[in-house]
C-alpha cells in the first residue's frame, strides 16, 4: 500500500524528466514548462491558502520580488541570475515576515484586502521608482547560454517543482500540516491544543514565499523581460488561487492537476481566448466556487470513497 502511494509521483516525475525524449515539439515543451511554473505557484499558494486556509490574494508580491531581484542585482552589481535568485528568495522571505506579521493579525476579508494592499504597494513602487525603470520594465539575464537554454532552464525548474511537491507531501502528513488545518477550521480550537496560530501561519507563508520567489526568478530568466504589469499584477495572485482551487485546495495533487488543466485549457482555447482570457478565468473561478469547491481532485476522491465505502463498513 505505502509503496503504491508513491507510484503516481514516480510516474509523473519520470514523465517530466524524460520529456525532451518523447516530446520533440519545441512549442509543446514550452507549454510543459509553463505547467511546471504554474504548478510550483499553485503548490506554494496551497500551503497558505489551502492548508492554512488563509485566502491570500497578494502572493504575486513574492513572485515580483523574485523576478525583480534577478534583474536588479544583475543590472546594479552584475550578479549572475543564480545569485540573484538566492537574493530574491531571501528578500521574499523577509517581505513575507513583514507582511505576514502584519496581515495575519487580521481575519476574513480584512486579511484578504490587506494582502492585496501589500502587493499593490509593491506594484506601484515598481511602477514609479526610477531604479526599477517604471512601466518600461527591466531586462533580466538568462540562466543558461544558448544552445538549448530553455531546456536547461526546464531542468532547473524540475527540482524546484519536486521540492515543492515533497514539501506538500510532508506537510500533508506531518504535525505542521495538521496544525495548519486546525488553524483553517478554527483558530480558537487550534490554540486549545497548544498551537500558536501566528507562528504556524508565518512558517507556511515563509515556505510559500520562498517557492514563489524562486519561480518568479525562473520566469524572469526565461522571459528575460519583466515589468510591473507582468510580474506584479494582481491577476497573477488570483491565478495562483484558481490553480489550487480548481485542482483541489489542501490536497497533494490538486495544484498540479489545476496547473495542467488550466494551462492546457487556456492553450487549447487560445484562438478564441486571445482577448477573452480574463473572462475565461473569471468564469472558471465562479464555476469552481459554485459547483466544485473541493476541486477536480474531490471528484476522483468521491468515486474512490463510493467504491471502497461498503468494504470499509464491513471491516
Amino acid at each position: 500500500m505505502s509503496r503504491a502511494r508513491f507510484l503516481p509521483a514516480v510516474v509523473f516525475f519520470g514523465l517530466l524528466l524524460t520529456l525532451p525524449w518523447w516530446l520533440r515539439d519545441a512549442y509543446l515543451q514550452q507549454i510543459v514548462f509553463r505547467v511546471v511554473i504554474f504548478a510550483i505557484l499553485g503548490i506554494a499558494w496551497n500551503l497558505v491558502g489551502g492548508y492554512a486556509g488563509q485566502l491570500s490574494l497578494g502572493h504575486v508580491a513574492y513572485f515580483g520580488i523574485g523576478a525583480y531581484s534577478v534583474a536588479l542585482f544583475h543590472e546594479t552589481w552584475d550578479w549572475n541570475p543564480w545569485l540573484g535568485t538566492l537574493a530574491g528568495v531571501v528578500l521574499a522571505c523577509l517581505a513575507a515576515l513583514l507582511i505576514g506579521s502584519l496581515t495575519f493579525r487580521l481575519r476574513g476579508p480584512y486579511f484578504v484586502l490587506s494582502t492585496i494592499a501589500a502587493a499593490e504597494i509593491l506594484r506601484l513602487l515598481a511602477l514609479n521608482l526610477s531604479f526599477t525603470h517604471g512601466a518600461i520594465g527591466m531586462i533580466a539575464p538568462g540562466f543558461f547560454e544558448e544552445p538549448n537554454g530553455d531546456r536547461k532552464t526546464y531542468y532547473a525548474a524540475l527540482p524546484l517543482l519536486f521540492l515543492a511537491f515533497a514539501l506538500t507531501v510532508w506537510t500533508h502528513r506531518s504535525r505542521f500540516g495538521y496544525y495548519l488545518r486546525a488553524i483553517r477550521e478554527n483558530e480558537d480550537t487550534a490554540m486549545a491544543v497548544g498551537i500558536n496560530p501566528a507562528v504556524e501561519k508565518l512558517k507556511a507563508l515563509l515556505f510559500s514565499a520562498a517557492l514563489v520567489a524562486a519561480a518568479g526568478a525562473l520566469y524572469a530568466g526565461v522571459f528575460q523581460f519583466i515589468g510591473p504589469d507582468s510580474v506584479l499584477a494582481i491577476d497573477m495572485s488570483v491565478q495562483m488561487a484558481l490553480i489550487a482551487m480548481l485542482g483541489g485546495a489542501a490536497t497533494v495533487w490538486g495544484p498540479i492537476v489545476g496547473a495542467v488543466v488550466l494551462t492546457v485549457a487556456a492553450e487549447a482555447l487560445k484562438t478564441y481566448l486571445e482577448r477573452a482570457h480574463t473572462f475565461f478565468y473569471g468564469l472558471l473561478l465562479v464555476l469552481v466556487v459554485l459547483f466544485l469547491p473541493g476541486g477536480l481532485v474531490s471528484i476522483a476522491k468521491q468515486r474512490w470513497f463510493r467504491r471502497t465505502a461498503p468494504r470499509a463498513q464491513a471491516a
Binding site: 488561487a241 480574463t278 473572462f279 466556487v289
Partner: peptide
C-alpha cells in the same frame, strides 16, 4: 450567484465576487 454562497465561508464568498469581477472586466475587454 451571490445567494448561493450566503452563509458559506468568507473564503468562497470573496473568490466568487472576484470571479464575477474578472468576468465583467473580461466581457468588457471582449
Amino acid at each position: 450567484l451571490i445567494r448561493r454562497v450566503m452563509g458559506q465561508s468568507d473564503f468562497l464568498q470573496i473568490l466568487l465576487t472576484e470571479g464575477i469581477a474578472l468576468c465583467l472586466v473580461g466581457a468588457a475587454q471582449l
